[in-house]
Amino acid sequence: MLDRLFIECIFACMSTGHILLGLLTERPKHGYELKREHDDRLPGVKPIAYGQVYATLQRLERDGKVAVSGTAKEGGPERTVYEITGDGADEVHRWLAEIEPPAPYVSSALFVRVVLALIAEGTADGYLLRQRAAHLERMRELTARKNTAGISAGELLATDYALYHLDADLRWLETARQRIDELTQEIRT
């Protein structure tokens, strides 16, 4: 049973291909433009490498989701401009119609520490308080960032997302503290 709970941390399989296709629905764009828009519009998502943009575009072109529509030259080197195909547009809309699987997300690292603290030290109280302090400190930083002037709406939402997840962890920690006796018993038997 415990093994089942140690579910591997599920990283949301965010497909770069879908993101690029989505950005292309506005108008044809070249690779550098796509990288810049990716990073600007999705703050909080790991910045994408230019090489990855290029590779993904080539894969999409091979699958017939995008096509080369011309070249652009704005001061710098000449760049290939891609446009989305009918297939590609269908793919984006199909993808948007899906939902993210609401995975049974267990913050495995926290859980492992609580269990090991109970096994090795007989109490998890100290750990829970320290973890709470660390979480709250991070939440304070994020809150402060939210309160800085001129923050974009996108950044605000991304920060909120992080805050809500930290908050969920904290509430789980508090519940863990209240359930610690049951857990101790379960581990000892």
């Binding site: 302090a133 979480h135 709250l136 939440m139 304070r140 994020l142 809150t143 805050l163 930290l166 908050d167």
Partner: peptide
């Protein structure tokens, strides 16, 4: 509410 507490400089539990 932890998100309210995150507005403070310090927390007393």
């Amino acid at each position: 509410d932890n998100r309210v507490a995150a507005h403070a400089d310090r927390e007393i539990v």
